[in-house]
Design a protein around this nucleic acid. Structure first.
Lengths: 202, 202, 202, 202
DNA sequence: AATGAATGAGTATTCATTCAT
DNA sequence: GATGAATGAATACTCATTCAT
């Protein structure tokens, strides 16, 4: 409540922001703590007043993502739209927010791929968990649609749901890595939507 | 071909093989040159008789993949199957060969994500190139199908083709990282095939 | 004496006391200024209102010891006991007060042994001086005893005195480091006294 | 057996020797690995080919001391001299070898006193063990002498033995720290011998 | 006077690469 | 050709001290 606390939280955010910039530019291994400090306009030691280690810094970044992600899951669960529309809406939303996280894509890959880091940070498990939950939410919607008769009855809900998740992840990764032009990406969005719609419809 | 040259090439392959094992087990950053030497049953210095650096070693591995990949592109180009079947066949083939490269998935992510390595090795460009070429091949088949009237005429061939590539990459990455059970993955395969078939058909 | 001054001196003492506790628990190198501040229930910066550095803090502790030590020297000089009894009494007193300083023994060793600190603090010299003065006091008493005929005339007073000082220091150090049981240590005291008495007597 | 192994052992010794020099000059904390490397005329990294850490280096030094010390214990145990002479001989021997280890005295104190190091290296325990064993050896000799009637029967053998050990340690420490002149130290030796002889005799 | 947020100098350790044998 | 001993650049982290409030 005291102004000090406000400052502390503000500064913590500033440091995370700076870290995001630097990690996005140089990758995790390629970024030195002093780079991040410089980007934040503070001294190297100051970072350690707010984070205990470089690892904790990356975890803080991922916590931000986790939060956004929980939002998405909640929206899916609470959606009053018909199942098919809810799924398509969620896909569209992911694709539309893509620019917010695109800079972080390479860092995600780097950490995700690195046995050492991924395991010490518990990232692999965390990611696995994310995808499973999103997949389960899609599966529930598919089943609901099948019960309502709006989604094709022969579909294996779980298998398709998990496939959708992998697919969308692939599309997001390629966006972050190869940065297609907005006009082209918007065409891709349309094709994806058409594909998923036709796949699910009766 | 003097016996010396045969030896050289043979040993080169053995080293690449050992590197594959070790990278698959410990990741790229996590593997020391001495680990690879030990796995290959040779001295650390000997690796440098065949490769100039650790980077060159990883490049050699990727060249192996490139070769496999060229095969796939050639098959696609030369395929006498109807376009729709050719595309589905290619997807199926990628999914069926997945185990061959799955161990390397994390390493690919690690290198791909690491700005430092990815750029110094020219990986980003190389990968971009791969995906563009595969995408172009799919696009050509789609157009051909549209001309023949077997593929939906409203589809934007290039956009869908590039989307298919991202999707399939996502599915392969998730396979390598999360290792679904064979029975579940085979259901995913079926759902993917159905989805793509319905998306492309009239 | 304005109340401010009283406060200052009081607080200074409190800080020294806290430092004693913390140094005793964690050693000199192992104690952070913030530990001491916390123990004293004040802010880190406040210590620097009373002491210019961590070194000065340890010097203040040693000044306390010096004062106790001066007392001992004065008692020795002014003692009206026969020389032999004075020496034995002084040894006994040192052994009996051992618990007061025992916690500080490791810190003394740490500082004493560390070239860096020991020299920058002038500890080596200071300690050397202490021991020389105690030794000189013993030597004077031995000579007096020899003149009175109560102490063995063949003894080299200075050499024995200096040896007594080293011996007693060794015993105090071992007490502080290994903490013998009180009952065993009291037996050691008796044996030491017997030894010194027999060594000095005719 | 191969020349490489001989070199390795030789070099290991050279590094220990260099470390001894540097630690003796600057203390443990005050010595940087690069100082030791420079003293040994090798690269910094080379030290790590022979020792895993700075700690391991200091342990190697102490192992040398341990070995010398075991010799002393063995000599004491196997001595065919009368008990009194055996004890006095052992004390004399310790005092005569004093110059060999004197340079290491401050380092011993530094490590011994530093909670952090002493505990992580297991030094405190090791030292305690040394002193207990020497003390036990003296106690056995005292008891033997009492049985033979050459040593005063009222002496508490264990208490005196442990006191002798502390005493001699004090004398050795003061030698290493204050470096008395050889002529004075030799007088101290004589006084110590006389003292111990008179303390033990009937 | 009191505080504690900010600072940055200082250092052990790893490991790709070299090169003498 | 093969080796592995030697190398040193590169970097996260700690903590005494400062100084704005």
């Amino acid at each position: 409540m005291s102004p000090k606390i406000v400052d502390k939280e503000q500064k913590r955010l500033e440091i995370v922001e700076a870290a995001l910039q630097v990690f996005g530019r140089k990758g995790y291994q390629g970024s030195r703590m002093s780079d991040i400090a410089q980007e934040a306009g503070i001294g190297k030691g100051t970072i350690y007043e707010y984070f205990n280690s470089k690892d904790e810094l990356i975890l803080a970044i991922f916590e931000g993502l986790t939060w956004e992600y929980e939002q998405l899951l909640n929206q899916l669960a609470e959606s009053s739209q018909p199942p098919l529309e809810a799924i398509l809406g969620s896909l569209t939303q992911l694709l539309e927010e893509v620019d917010e996280y695109a800079d972080l894509t390479p860092v995600c890959l780097e950490l995700w791929g690195s046995r050492l880091l991924s395991e010490s940070l518990g990232l692999r498990e965390k990611m696995s968990d994310w995808f499973e939950r999103l997949s389960a939410a899609y599966a529930r919607l598919i089943v609901k649609g099948q019960q309502k008769g709006t989604i094709h009855p022969e579909i294996d809900a779980k298998a398709l749901a998990r496939t959708l998740v992998s697919m969308i992840d692939g599309i997001l990764l390629h966006y972050g890595l190869f940065r297609p032009s907005p006009s082209f990406f918007s065409k891709q969005e349309k094709e994806l939507e058409r594909m998923v719609r036709r796949a699910l419809q009766l």
